Simulated assay, not measured.
Amino acid sequence: MLKVLNVSGKEMLEQLKLSCQIPGLLDAIATRQIIFDAARSAGIKVEVQELQQSANSLRTANNLLKAEDTWTWLQKHHLSLEEFEQLAEINLLSAKLANHLFADKVESFFYEHQLDYLAAVTYEVILDDEDLAWELFYALTEGEMSFQDMTRQHIQNPELRRTGGYRGIRPRKDFKPDIAAAVFVANPPELLKPIVTTQGVHLLRVEEIIRPELDQQLRLKIMSDFFSTWLKEQIAQIEVIPHFESDSYSPTVQELLKLA
């Protein structure tokens, strides 16, 4: 039989303090207020049909495919239906505000930063001995061994060894600068000469260079990045002052948020 533990608002506040989560909580409150205020100033409104679509997207994102799944999720998070609608509304307002503020900046930004969105498919072995790396490089280029054979002999990590050193699809920013400089001028499939970094000596096979396209997914990502930066700038201009009640804890956004 389950035991029941009654938890008061004061105890929840105390736990938030002890787990050092108050700053994040206050930033979240400030963020919501900023979005509501900016949307109101821009004349952005939420239509009933749009809100329903946003709610459906929220359910899909949380894998709430059945009505009972939704009810269970709401109970777990102590949310009412009205509060679930508020979640859907803030998501929708955020998307519409981001589009209002930054939709016309995406294309020019993309073309100015195309190199940042390049990606590559690579296989890699990292060695400790540069002489060994060159020896293996020449053996590979002369066909004395395959890259797969080399990875089986020189990769210690079992998972990486099983996949032949496959590193997946990685954007340019995930490569060290000196490695990126070699990878993104390669003519795939191409084995690169050994590259020495602080991590070791890298032997890389570049399988594919993936050129970026400004599709809807990338457009939304760029807009989201713009929006996140904008929100941080707005929060930096706000002083958030919490007022803690000694006997009860039921602050409103207005009590927690004070503009500098």
Rank of each mutant, 00 (worst) to 15 (best):
D129P: 12
F102M: 12
K96A: 09
E135K: 14
Q114F: 15
A103V: 06
E124A: 12
M145K: 08
L140Y: 03
M145N: 01
R152W: 03
I90T: 09
A120H: 00
Y117Q: 05
I155N: 07
H100M: 06
L93G: 02
L115Q: 13
F110V: 12
T122Q: 02
Q114Y: 09
E124C: 11
M150P: 01
A120M: 03
A139M: 10
M145W: 01
L127R: 07
D131Q: 13
T141D: 00
H113V: 02
V125Q: 02
M150K: 02
M145G: 09
L140Q: 07
Y123D: 00
P158K: 08
Y138Q: 11
L140H: 02
S146N: 08
E144R: 00
T122M: 06
A133E: 10
Q156R: 14
Y111H: 15
S94L: 08
H113W: 10
T122N: 09
A119R: 12
L127A: 05
I90W: 07
T163E: 01
E130Y: 11
Q156V: 10
E112R: 14
E135I: 01
Q156H: 10
Y138H: 09
Q153T: 07
F109N: 11
N157Q: 13
A98T: 04
A133P: 00
A95I: 06
F137S: 04
F110Y: 12
A139P: 01
D149Y: 05
F110L: 12
A120Y: 01
L136T: 06
Q153C: 11
E144H: 01
D104F: 09
R152E: 14
A103E: 15
D104E: 14
I155Q: 04
L92Q: 02
T122E: 04
H113F: 11
L93E: 07
L127C: 08
F102T: 05
T141A: 04
T151E: 01
K105E: 14
A133S: 09
F147N: 06
A98E: 01
I155L: 15
R161M: 13
L132P: 06
A119T: 10
I90V: 13
N99P: 05
T163H: 07
L136M: 04
I90D: 05
E142V: 01
E124T: 15
M150I: 10
D116M: 08
Q148S: 11
Y123L: 02
E142T: 08
H154V: 01
K105A: 12
N157W: 02
F109V: 12
T141Q: 14
K105Q: 15
Y117I: 08
Q148V: 09
E144P: 03
L127Y: 07
F137I: 04
T141K: 15
L140R: 06
L115K: 10
R152M: 11
N91E: 14
A95M: 12
H100W: 13
E142C: 00
E142G: 03
L136N: 04
